[in-house]
Design a protein around this nucleic acid. Structure first.
Length: 484
RNA sequence: CGCGGGAUAGAGCAGUUGGCAGCUCGCCAGGCCCAUAACCUGGAGGUCGUCGGUUCGAAUCCGACUCCCGCAACCA
């Protein structure tokens, strides 16, 4: 297999301390559109996602539940894996960072960084709140005190941790950024990270004491330490390809297009590249930084669970409707607000009244007049067609969908203007309807990356010799069916 | 002067190199009747956050200001 014909995209891994939420669903769906698009355009695609199962929070929650971290994560890993069906995703790989092959890969990665002199031990002082019985990070503190126990002094605890020589890679990173102007999309995130790196980098800790927090990958050659959770987590992007054992597969697909939320900017575009440089591996191809989603104007909070439930939404409206809403109404790279009311509006206006009704009009007229068509799908032609979607190449999902919907409107206009129901000659009616059926088939072809189920159904329907009306595609919704 | 983003019709958003302010939903009025009370045509609705500048002309360029939102190092 030639490398040019391969495409690799990966999302971030979901942290398994709660159910999947809408923001992560949006990330998966956008990655899925890109993956499906590349695949339809003829590429061999690896699409990776999975779960991140190390770290303190999971350790504590597992302990509280009386389970091992792995057993505790089994439930959530299954929930996340089920998104493949629920959201109609095409991911090919689902990695769990507790998988054995991943842990071995993380250790090999660590060794390479260590061999390069980039990992060293240092005494590290952490702030500890006796009230919470927890270590606190600077960002958690208010005026240098624990916001939950402002009357207590924080204790300083010293412990030995391994550190990664991030500072060493400041200039190499800046050089890389300069030579790869499309490395980060959108460009303002690129500006942000360039400023951050240019301001100077501090080495960061990459391990924790096993005695305090055993839920991590053992540090090679040190029984007392485990890797800090995201050091091993980032390695999933290559361990999922079989690195370091399956060098052939790794070479065939790496580097990846990575997608992530804006909270991951530093890890994905500065720390991970520095780690790759240290390990002597090529850097990622591109990183897409998505915005955040709020729900009805409020922050989606995992812990409070005040987000709209993903599984309920899909059972109510279907995966394609949710996909359509998220792709058209939420700007891919900026923050957006999810509103169920808007979802219903879009569903009725575009899916039911627009696409669904057009399909019903044309198929009904074809059936009633016994008109035979002979349309077929030509995969190569479809691939050529899709590869020309320029807006998709720049990740402007809504623009491609807009252009598809312009076609739908145009078909509706044409149908109204030529009013075949007023004609009596069957051939005259057919002359109006056959080209419309063909246009619907093209619309279906173009819809494949976005609304896979709908597209499949339409293609099956419109490649029949005698096209029949069939079931309503998107039944109109009453505003009262809202679940919230 | 820490970094970055945003402010355009009731709502959600577009506005490439400055040239009569657009799209979708919603709303109103006609038409049509094949279709999922759907479709088609037309209409109402905006001093483009504020102030000042450059220009024949600024939502668009420059300056100042106001208000919102992220990030500010270990929150995967």
């Amino acid at each position: 297999m030639s490398k040019e014909n391969n495409f690799y995209i990966t999302t971030t891994l979901a942290y398994t301390n709660s159910d999947p939420h809408l923001g992560f669903a949006a990330e998966l769906i956008k990655a899925d559109v890109i993956a499906r698009w590349q695949s339809l355009a003829g590429k061999q695609v690896v699409f990776n996602t999975g779960t991140d199962e190390h770290g303190l929070k999971i350790f504590q929650q597992a302990k509280a539940a009386g389970l091992s971290p792995r057993a505790y994560c089994d439930y959530y890993a299954a929930r996340f894996a089920s998104l493949k069906k629920v959201l109609d995703l095409s991911f090919t790989n689902f990695i769990r960072t507790s998988d054995d092959y991943h842990e071995k890969a993380a250790q090999e990665f660590w060794r390479r960084c260590a061999e390069n002199g980039d990992i060293y031990k240092k005494t590290y002082s952490v702030k500890y709140c006796v009230g919470c019985e927890l270590e606190k990070t600077e960002s958690e503190l208010v005026d240098g005190r624990c916001p939950l126990h402002p009357n207590r002094e924080l204790e300083l605890i010293e412990e030995d941790n391994y550190f990664f020589r991030f500072s060493k890679y400041q200039q190499p990173l800046l050089d890389f950024y300069k030579n790869h102007p499309d490395f980060i999309i959108p460009s303002h995130r690129f500006t942000e990270i360039k400023n951050f790196v240019a301001a100077g980098l501090q080495d960061f800790s990459v391990s924790r004491l096993k005695s305090k927090m055993p839920n991590g990958v053992p540090v090679p050659g040190d029984d007392e330490q485990v890797m800090y959770v995201w050091f091993d987590a980032l390695v999933n992007y290559i361990s999922t390809l079989g690195w370091p054992n399956n060098e052939e597969n790794f070479q065939a697909f790496w580097p990846a297009v990575q997608v992530c939320g804006k909270d991951n900017l530093r890890q994905q575009t500065a720390m991970w590249p520095a780690m790759l440089l240290s390990a002597g591996l090529p850097l990622s191809r591109q990183v897409l930084i998505f915005g955040f989603l709020t729900a009805n104007g409020q922050k989606i909070s995992k812990s409070l669970g005040n987000g709209v439930d993903l599984f309920t939404l899909v059972s109510q409206y279907g995966a394609d409707a949710l996909r359509y809403y998220l792709l058209t109404e939420i700007p891919p790279f900026e923050d957006g607000d999810f509103s169920e009311e808007r979802l219903i509006q879009k569903y009725n206006a575009d899916l039911a009244n627009g696409l669904g009704n057009l399909v019903a009009r044309v198929s009904n007229l074809l059936e009633k007049n016994n008109i035979i068509t002979s349309l077929s799908t030509d995969n190569e032609a479809a691939a050529r067609y899709l590869s020309k979607e320029e807006n998709l190449a720049s990740y402007q999902f809504s623009r491609t969908l807009q252009s598809i919907w312009q076609d739908i409107t145009a078909c509706n206009e044409e149908l109204s203007a030529r009013a075949p129901w007023k004609l009596t000659e069957r051939e005259a009616i057919a002359a109006v309807l056959r080209p419309l059926a063909e246009r619907i088939l093209i619309i279906a072809t173009r819809l494949q990356p976005f609304l896979p189920t709908t597209a499949k159904r339409l293609i099956a329907q419109f490649t029949q010799a005698q096209i029949i009306k069939g079931e309503v595609l998107f039944p109109r919704l009453d505003a009262k069916s809202k679940t919230v």
